[in-house]
Amino acid sequence: MIEALPLHILSAFLFATGLAIVIIKRNAIVVLMGIELMLNASNVNLIVFNRMHPSTFDGQMFALFVIIVAVCETAVGLAIILRVYRFYKTSVPDHIQELKG
């Protein structure tokens, strides 16, 4: 017997926490962690909903692909952060303000 309600609450809170991290934290790497949390919240959702619609495998498959995409995003993202670091010597987005208009 699986209880869906706490899992829904978990995913909602994970998403909200991820969003809060993205908005509040002033460090690109921590923002990246927040994004990972948001993606994981969706994954929890997908897997729980797959249990509600068990005739197909869609939810679990989607979750697998989300993990793949998250890996790519992290790899490219960290590469970009590292390069910005070389130019600016900081990973605090607020200090990176050459472009204005």
Partner: peptide, 22 residues
């Protein structure tokens, strides 16, 4: 700098979109 902002903004947008999809 542009690509960092693009990346952060875009990843958040796609994470939000994914939640909507789920």
């Amino acid at each position: 700098e542009g690509s960092l902002k693009y990346f952060l903004f875009g990843s958040v947008a796609s994470a939000i979109m994914l939640y909507g999809f789920s």
